[in-house]
Design a protein around this nucleic acid. Structure first.
Lengths: 257, 257
DNA sequence: ACTAAAATTATCAAAATACAAGAAAATATG
DNA sequence: CATATTTTCTTGTATTTTGATAATTTTAGT
């Protein structure tokens, strides 16, 4: 264990399921002497990446809240997309959850969302939660724009039931790409139906998607063209807005240097 | 520069004002050779604490969004307080912003907030933003429960105009502590008036406050007892709920070990 | 308040790794 | 395609990290 890894391994132990650890537990888990862990944890506490809780436990520290805010204010995708999510929601014919998601390693992560006030169910897509790469419209709309070796690398870790399953997956992906949007039902959450379109910006290295998720019960076939039209027009707006934000940042750097 | 400092110094360059940096800029700023910065940045990118943007720039990475979510789901203060903010807001006699804040080093940070739909102004208190320690009811309600050497250490970095200013500050603090709540007007934001009560849990090391912020124009003296009663009763509820959450976590650790 | 247990910090020599500086490679730009 | 820029690689040396143990501090139970 060396470099940043030694800190990252400890931080990554803290999860939704297990949000507090003692030094001894960390030491056991990472098979590293406790004297070493004490030292590293102390450093992380000093930097507010961890903080001590009751009973010798430690939990994630407020530094993450601070940096998360900076991202919300500055990430071009979040900045460009966030303001449109509510508008998109209001133009959808039925109650919806609207999500802006992006690649995160070989997972997909929601970075902004807006749920209409009376939407019944909970979706798995929540800001910051990692979602499967190959299931759900939200994820598929992202990867359908990735091709060649990049796609291969990305899917390397994924397991398909069999070759047939894999073939179907690629055929669907190609098909969706031709249509320009993606629709899946119940792949991630039972009883929900999702529509998604890709959002890309090669210059900024953005590989993302915009999606609307509905309760299957509410959904009627005649809604589909409206949903698709909304998603498409907003994704174009967002892509254009991303460029504008990028130009702003460029100008800022030129002026200040 | 050694240990976590070497990573933290780089991460802390990324701010609301300046959210993207090139390796060369970092190298200049920290007076460290670029080959070293390249190595460190590469490590941070690998861990998703940074990510590369267009034109050799880097920005904060999605790891912060992920960890921020885990905090929202697991931090006892956030978990205990979040659900009550909207209720508190609805029971206030006028439009309000309601804030849960805590100590963060020698600053104060908002960790959860709820603004009523028609509140006009923007407050400086936003989730994740660092606020001054000695101005504003939100901050003062936190420090008024801290005494002795802890308080001294905390205030070491603060500068007062003169000794008189300092004396007044301590006298007010003592006074507020006796009353049980804190009220300030225009100390942080012009035209806003804030009320705050402390939230503490010694066992969990929680030093926080609950506050309601109003537009000065809306506020009438007869509102004050209602506001105070609401804040007090909700702070007690939250303190009790924190203990319950703590017990839940305790039980979880006992069962799983 | 006292005591035992637990948690945390300090010490230090050996081992591992980060460093600086320039060269080389990869990538972007016009 | 040529050039400029960005990024990675290489190497001996200096610095940092490590981990076993000891010392200290904190916590919890009587």
């Amino acid at each position: 264990m060396s470099g940043f890894t030694r800190y990252n391994k400890i931080l990554n132990l803290f999860s939704e399921q297990r949000s507090s650890w003692t030094v001894l537990e960390i030491s056991d888990e990472l098979k590293t002497p406790s004297s070493t862990i004490y030292r590293i944890v102390r450093e992380l506490v000093l930097a507010e990446f961890l903080e001590s809780a009751a009973g010798a436990y430690f939990r994630l520290g407020p530094a993450f809240i601070k940096f998360n805010r900076i991202i919300n204010l500055s990430d071009p995708l979040v900045r460009a997309g966030q303001p449109f999510l509510k508008k998109l929601a209001n133009e959808n014919p039925i109650e919806s959850v609207n999500v802006l998601a992006r690649l995160y390693g070989n997972k997909v992560m929601c970075v902004a969302d807006y749920k209409t006030p009376f939407f019944k169910n909970n979706t798995s897509y929540q800001k910051g939660k990692l979602m499967p790469l190959i299931y759900g419209a939200t994820s598929r709309a992202i990867i359908m724009k990735i091709v060649g070796k990049s796609l291969e690398d990305l899917l390397k870790q994924e397991t398909f039931y069999d070759d047939n399953d894999k073939d179907t997956f690629f055929k669907n992906l190609k098909n969706d790409n031709k249509k320009g949007y993606c629709k899946t039902e119940g792949q991630v959450d039972e009883g929900l139906i999702g529509f998604a379109v890709p959002i890309n910006n090669k210059k900024l290295g953005i590989e993302a998607s915009l999606s609307s998720i509905f309760n299957s019960i509410d959904f009627l076939p005649e809604h589909e063209p409206i949903i698709y039209a909304n998603l498409t027009s907003y994704s174009l707006l967002i892509e254009r807005y991303i460029n504008q934000i990028f130009d702003d940042i460029q100008n800022y750097h030129q002026i200040s240097s």
